[in-house]
Nucleic acid binder design. Sequence first.
DNA 1: CATCCTTCTTAAAGGTTTTAAGTATTTGCC
DNA 2: GGCAAATACTTAAAACCTTTAAGAAGGATG
Lengths: 189, 189
Amino acid sequence: MARAGLTAERLTRAAADLADEIGFQNVTVSVLARGFGVKPAALYSHVKDAQELRVRVALLALAELADRAAAALAGRAGKDALVAFANAYRDYAKEHPGRYAAMQIELDSEALDIGPAIRHAEMTRAILRGYRLPEPDQTDAVRMLHSTFHGYVSLEMAGGFRRTPREADASWSRTLDALDAVLGNWPPA
Amino acid sequence: MARAGLTAERLTRAAADLADEIGFQNVTVSVLARGFGVKPAALYSHVKDAQELRVRVALLALAELADRAAAALAGRAGKDALVAFANAYRDYAKEHPGRYAAMQIELDSEALDIGPAIRHAEMTRAILRGYRLPEPDQTDAVRMLHSTFHGYVSLEMAGGFRRTPREADASWSRTLDALDAVLGNWPPA
DNA sequence: CATCCTTCTTAAAGGTTTTAAGTATTTGCC
DNA sequence: GGCAAATACTTAAAACCTTTAAGAAGGATG
């Protein structure tokens, strides 16, 4: 019997793709193994346990999203940058719902400190450069932006906006207008 | 042998309490049954399956949160109302992380149309009354507010703000200032 | 008291994760 | 090329989980 050629990386990518198809919650060691035509136990030669697999998918997604956001941000400033970043964020989540869900798992401090999360924060700060906010307002604004993006996307994906006739796209666009407005006119403490 | 006196309601409350203690994901039919000193199969006389239990916990949490928010809102208007509502929301999530997590599950349209979710939207609109926004701006603003609250709370609970020294409370307060500012000065389309 | 409905238990099927031990394939070295 | 060592995968098994079906025991009701 030929070997399957498993690898932590290949497993991670397959798990991410599977998550986008069938939902992150439904990605189990068993179905992943089935997809490769191997027995579940085979995965344990490449990955410590199911949790490690989940964390790997989360980190993959964070890195991919960071790449997209960085590309979107290139050469833009001010509101242009804000909108480009926000759309990159939302579009990624819609294209990759499973990967996006993976990003929401509790990452322990070790995993968080590495790479992707930091890049994310740096880029959000880059957006704000055009608005010239001093610290600590900048930190507060970064948190507000991230919250709004994440909150909007996850409520939209959960179907929270489907009960009102207004298009989700329209409200998104206006929300970005509002964010731009308030960043340009940040209230004094 | 005396009976345990199970009920869908008692099971739901116990599941919610358990969720706050050990995490929503870890609430299983088995551990819930163990808590009542009965066999797992006994629960199926009161509840269709594990998913129904989860939905019940979600609806319980939505109703509780709506009660709190309504109480916080009573007699307030403008920024007072905004801050009171927002704090009720965030405090509830911090006190009841398991219940809050339950609220995030995908509720099918039937479950969503009933009660709690609608109350929630109505209350957010009540906050906005003081800001006198016309439609469709009002809908956009409702969505933005809800997104910001939910996004902030879930990022905070996931530990997303722990890497920056600034207190989460401080950024929260400033975020509410910013929301108040932008609601009072909503950008034209 | 006898009957009937409901609650709970027992039993069992089928799914999951994970570890341990064995087999087989590939790698690398002489 | 051939042999030994490392690694990939399978088999086997333990320990959970959910869920259904059938039976026993509890409590209410006539």
